[in-house]
Amino acid sequence: MHIAVILRLNPVLTDELELTEGGKDIDREWIGFELNPMDDQALEQSVLLKEAHGAKVTAIAAEAEGGERLLRTALARGVDDVLLISNKKDDDAPPPSSRARTPLLVEAIKQVKPDLVITGILSTDDLYGELAPQLAACLNWPQASAVSDVRLDGMVLTVRQEYAGGMAALIEMDLPAVIGLQTAASPPRYVAGSKLRDLLNTKVPEMEASAEFAEDLSEATTLNLPDTSGGAEMIEGDAKSVAARIHEILMERGLV
């Protein structure tokens, strides 16, 4: 059993987001990037499957910057192999979208030949309706998103797919398949900094994809900071005075 897990970097959303001139991208200069939290779940689930079934796990990334560090973290977390897809772009261009990157990822998947591809269900910068279903469509494999439990039995995969209102279903799929993971069976494990430092000089294998970026709508898209007028009335002050004001509001409404 061979599992490929696709990892992406995402801006840290608690940082203040600013836009580049013209609004074609967020300003990436000062903002932090982290492993997409849902890919973090996908990584954990892949390692859990490795531990339970002796599967081999290969982590794949297609980041122009930070990809090596990302993949070293994956090694520290327990994956067996990593593969970085070279993703050179002009310095000024925004990083390619999920849609644009899909053909390169598909090429890497065809090279790695996994039985199962796992990635996070959502990446907050993705305007194109998410990666897992796109990959599955290109590979012509079955796919399920919003998955919160993954079980393997030979070449049959059973996943728990979640719906609104706490409803769910157990869905069985023949492998190979793709899943868009929401939650791993247990929270992502902690990795000691020393383990990461040990891997600092580990060479991350790179592949030069021959596929071209797919067309997307980035030229036709501009980003905007939403209008905040008409939003919440902000309560200023220290904790004590804010608490007093909230108490007052609740009393005015007869809620306490």
């Binding site: 849609r99 899909t102 269900i121 993705d126 305007l127 194109y128 309706g129 998410e130 279903p133 796109q134 599955a136 469509a137 290109c138 796919q143 399920a144 998103s145 919003a146 797919q161 979640e162 719906y163 609104a164 868009g180 997307d216 709508l217």
Partner: peptide, 20 residues
């Protein structure tokens, strides 16, 4: 959940652009 599964897959298979 169904929308996430279907829309991007349909877009790729029918060669249409897709927006989420």
């Amino acid at each position: 959940t169904a929308g996430v599964d279907l829309a991007a897959g349909l877009a790729v298979r029918s060669e249409r652009p897709m927006l989420g």
